[in-house]
Design a protein around this nucleic acid. Structure first.
Lengths: 368, 368
DNA sequence: ATGAAAGCGCTAACAG
DNA sequence: CTGTTAGCGCTTTCAT
């Protein structure tokens, strides 16, 4: 099974290797007849260009490194899928690096990918602070786009979900269905999801005139904390629990069921991310769906931009608006439904959540 | 940020490129003093070997292609993680290819990976039959190991879960906790999971003297079918529903709850795979956990074997025994518990499911 | 033990 | 438009 080389195709078609290369790579104009002969010979011999040789000479491997904290995080597989497809559509291949949620592993993986001459890096950073160094260094070598999670300001392009809009969609929805006694369960971490969702919750409740009602419970992004937080929140007799991600919300649902609390009758519960489990929870979880495909497309687009240009120009921050997915866990309770129109921004209509509309929330060229 | 080359290290250390190469790759014995100088120079210049150039010359990229049907299938992320880690531990990188569950895409992705000169392929085949052609062709070029799903006999090494053992564990458990009126919900497909789990169910129920009781409902591996199958099974008044995977089982749980049937009081439900959702279902799902880490390790081991050797020798079929994970969905109902010891193989003790014991079910060198 | 030289398979200059 | 010639950065004979 020895591979056919350009040279053999050249010999078989009676012209030089350069010409064959030109025909097959489409780099330069070539005579019609010559081209035909070359293609014929290549076809007959079953010629397949050796991408490694091509990469060495052309200084481009057509390969992009995708670095992520842990593929088992339920939010990532769909993102990986979209990224993989978007890149493959451009003829690029994906080198995958799973960091086991460890910034040191992340740094090592990034270095390895650079040694392998990836054309660019797409990174979902492990940690807002601890990843910064490795990411910054890598960005000096190749085009680099951060996805989903930031890494401090100005270090590289960043494509992420607009957490503020997502939280606003949730709160508008809850208020418009009559909920007023709202609590928040989130994470105390320094990651963008933890920080931004909490900030958005506080800003939005203030704007809606609900501020200062219930407790804000901060732990980590785990099922266990979701369960535990319920016990701390329940004494305040809330009618809604807003969770900073789906895992927390599912934990909360479990604990509430255990305690015999009716969801959504007594308390509405909402999540964030729309991981696959959200739809399978019982009751199915109302949540904020991240615009996964658009995130991937935008990130790949930015990469392409930097690959085509000179990898300079200002860093961009692109925020894509998510979509509210209303499911059973926040269905209107019969008693509170009539009160719907009492809050100023209670109607969710002006903040439509269709794919078209939310896409327009994109802020394409904001310098950090 | 222009990269440092071997040549520059040679000049800086006062010796030839060949020597530098030898020191850094550890290929041949080198004088201690020379080695020191070389390493020092390399260190000072921040030299990083260009893996593409190395690959071209040495005809080995240190890269393995991982081809899978759909990364969003909830069973795959943990497998990908383990494979990625196992390969990285050997200094190899993973080129990921998601096939969108389409055999044609799969064939294209495999061809692309071969063009990129992967040293080997690890494939979770999309389809038992339709993948066979592309897989067979690829196996002629590089070492190739099939993971999780077969592709017809004798085409390549295959590492997979022992479905028969898994099903036996489930049935022993159900019988030993007093269940007798057992039904099966599975898939009608031709994939190994569908076929083998059904066959194992039938063989085992026969062995246990339960054969012929309830219906065997075959659809596809979807939540919807899990729900629908419940309606078809319920008239038979079963006390247990064995499902061929977790998604089916979760669908069944949802429908049973909707109908007000008590699980596990009235009916026990079991799944297969132990996807992350299994633990979050309510009640938590009793299921069969695939030995994910061991599957990955074994697959990588076989790859290494073929990479080291000459990629000949008989095809191997390695089946690794899974582990029963008992959760709430099959807890003993108070009424049926006392009847436990009536069936011949009812005790689950002899078929222990600890990692040690099940691992020994491995059949390491079976020729297909 | 070390160096010189020959490529791996391909693309990019540079001529014609 | 096409051929000739270098050479990408490295490993590997083949000498010494």
């Amino acid at each position: 099974m020895t591979d056919v080389t350009l040279r053999e195709v050249a010999r078989a078609s009676g012209c030089s290797v350069a010409t064959v290369s030109r025909v097959l790579a489409g780099t330069r104009p070539v005579g019609a007849e010559t081209a035909r002969k070359v293609r014929e010979a290549a076809e007959k011999l079953g010629y397949r260009p050796n991408q490694v040789a091509r990469a060495l000479r052309s200084r481009s491997t057509g390969t992009v490194g995708l670095v992520l904290p842990q593929i088992t995080n339920p939010f990532f597989p769909s993102l990986v899928r979209e990224v993989e497809h978007a890149l493959h559509a451009e003829g690029r291949a994906v080198l995958l690096a799973d960091c086991d949620d460890d910034p040191e592993v992340e740094a090592a993986r990034i270095a390895d990918l650079l040694d392998r001459q990836v054309d660019a890096l797409l990174i979902i950073a492990v940690d807002e602070r601890q990843s910064r160094d490795a990411v910054g260094k890598a960005a000096a070598h190749v085009p680099l786009v951060l996805l989903d999670r930031g890494c401090g300001p100005g270090i590289a392009d960043l494509v992420t979900t607009d957490n503020a809009t997502g939280m606003a969609l949730v709160l508008d929805h809850l208020v418009s269905t009559g909920r007023r006694r709202i609590c928040f369960v989130g994470a105390a971490g320094t990651g963008s999801a933890a920080v931004e969702r909490l900030a958005a919750y506080e800003a939005e409740t203030k704007a809606l005139g609900l501020h200062g009602f219930g407790p804000v419970e901060l732990g980590d992004f785990s099922l266990e904390w979701g369960r535990a937080a319920v016990d701390r929140i329940l004494p305040f007799r809330p009618d809604a629990v807003v969770c900073a991600n789906d895992l927390l919300a599912i934990g909360a649902l479990q604990r509430l069921r255990q305690l015999g609390v009716d969801v959504p009758g007594d308390i509405a519960v909402t999540g964030f991310d729309d991981i696959p489990m959200a739809d399978l929870a019982d009751p199915a979880l109302t949540t904020v769906r991240q615009p996964v495909r658009a995130l991937a497309a935008e990130a790949v687009h930015l990469l392409g931009h930097r690959l085509a240009g000179q990898n300079d120009g200002p860093r961009r921050l692109v925020r894509l608006a998510p979509e509210l997915v209303v499911r059973a866990s926040s269905a209107s309770s019969a008693s509170s439904a009539p009160r719907a129109s009492s809050a100023p921004r209670a109607s969710s209509a002006p903040r439509a959540s269709s794919a078209e509309d939310t896409r327009s929330t994109r802020t394409p060229e904001v310098e950090q």
